[in-house]
């Protein structure tokens, strides 16, 4: 089998907020079609790491290499980079003044200049795919949390990104709505989307993840396939964390 393409590479990434050092010397590698799941306690830096990958947070030092190109915030057009890196947020962040379809077609039309006809066609296809084919003309305020998050996933996919980032996509959902979102993400992973997922859903991490990364206090403590991390963790801290969640 040929070596698969490297989508994201992070080397010695450091990030502080004022005096608070939140990421220490992070190294990370994500290959094409990998699903990488970041787990760890709140405040361990996993969301910050994810946000650094599409430059919503700007690193202090280290390298971030996206699809082979080292990206620096001050020299690169981040808008171009972000077009290939979709992001799904904990609180959905749908545009409340636009309909469901309006949310999905906004960026393809405004950023990529795709015609309305084409954007609508693709938008409807994506909304059908996430199971919201009957909600095109509804405003987000009429949707449940799970539906909102699925719209947010469709909105990100509409830019045809090569990489999708998920920042605790189910943490703001009522328990009974978590499943539908995870199911959508699982399908996406099965289709070969490259994904980096920050989550507290250990079941998802185990079932869908190709790699699981355990972070604590701004450092990567352990990286491995799910069975290794969940069944035979090497590090004491990983064990302690898993004991506390299960």
């Amino acid at each position: 089998m040929t070596e698969s393409k490297e989508m994201v590479r992070v080397e010695k990434l450091n990030k502080s907020f004022g005096d608070l050092h939140v990421l220490y010397d992070i190294d990370l590698e994500v290959k094409e079609s990998d699903v990488v799941v970041l787990i760890g306690a709140s405040g361990s830096g996993k969301s910050t790491l994810l946000r650094c990958l599409n430059f919503l947070e700007i690193k202090d030092d280290g390298k971030i290499i996206i699809e082979g190109e080292q990206v620096e915030a001050d020299t690169h057009d981040l808008n171009k980079v972000r077009q290939n890196v979709g992001m799904v947020f904990q609180h959905f962040n749908l545009f409340p003044h636009k309909t469901v379809l309006g949310n999905v077609i906004e960026a393809p039309m405004q950023v990529k200049g795709i015609s309305k006809k084409e954007a609508v066609k693709e938008g409807k296809r994506l909304l059908d795919k996430v199971g919201l084919g009957d909600k095109y003309n509804v405003y987000p305020s009429r949707l449940s949390g799970g539906q909102k998050q699925r719209v947010a996933i469709a909105r990100a996919l509409a830019m045809q990104p090569d990489i999708m980032l998920f920042d605790e996509p189910t943490s703001a959902l009522d328990p009974e709505l978590v499943g539908e979102v995870l199911e959508t993400m699982k399908e996406l992973g099965n289709e070969g989307m490259t994904m980096v997922v920050v989550t507290h859903e250990m079941g998802f991490a185990r079932e869908v993840g190709d790699w699981v990364i355990y972070m604590d206090e701004g450092k990567i403590i352990e990286v491995g396939p799910p069975d290794q991390i969940f069944d035979h963790p090497k590090e004491e801290r990983t064990k302690a964390f898993l004991d506390s969640v299960f």
């Binding site: 981040l78 171009k80 947020f89 960026a107 950023v111 990100a156 830019m159």
Partner: peptide
């Protein structure tokens, strides 16, 4: 809202 828009490349 701003972050979502920027994350879409706007």
């Amino acid at each position: 809202q701003r972050e979502a828009a920027r994350s879409l490349g706007m």
